[in-house]
Amino acid sequence: MRPIAPQTLLFLEIAIFSAAVFLHLTKKNSSAVRLYVAQSAAVSFLLMVPAFAEPSALLLTALVATVAVKLLVAPYFFFGLIRRHRLRFSVSTYLNTPVTVLIIAALAAFTQTEAFRPLTQLAAGGDRSLLLSVATIMISLFLIINRKGALSQMLGILSLENGIVSFALFAGLEQSPGLQLGITFNILIWIIIATVFISMIYRQFGSLDVTAMKRLTE
């Protein structure tokens, strides 16, 4: 199989990055989940590149597991949550949209500065993709900070994870399939536990607004 053109990779990375940005902008929970699925799909494509370069059974299993968790299990749980608790809209953000965009731009610009310059030598050609994935990480982090909804925070963490995975791919770091499986399993458990927690939060607090949780302040 011929290697995939760098442009394609860059395009995928831009998709991942944009998904993170749009996660900031969307107000509907269902579209946020869809954005995450789209992002995960892009990450899965990226994952396939090395998998198909040197196919092996274990590697394929790992890949399938990852795809299954990110594209099937996660949305299943999330849509289930949304349906059960009728969570159409995510709870509001701290900052309004223009300021949010401004900060996203600042964070993205920050990843292009001297501070992250050393990272570019990791990938000979794909330094823009590499830095974009770093930007994805920072923006996802900001998403968690900006959003008051528990579900959005969860999606932010998953998006952060996607950013890290894409960074690893661009930096040419590959894990052994065993590790890959382990990490995927970890994420699966995480998603399950977090989903259970969100349900419990909803039961306890009547909403997913995490700002309601401010009793422990000493």
Binding site: A115, M138, L141, I145, K214
Partner: peptide
Amino acid sequence: IKKIQVGNINVYIGYILVTLTFLLIMLA
């Protein structure tokens, strides 16, 4: 100083981001 512990998780995560950014800038 106690006000650091505001009880708001978003702020807590903000601390992490700010610390990270600050140290990265210092490093640069």
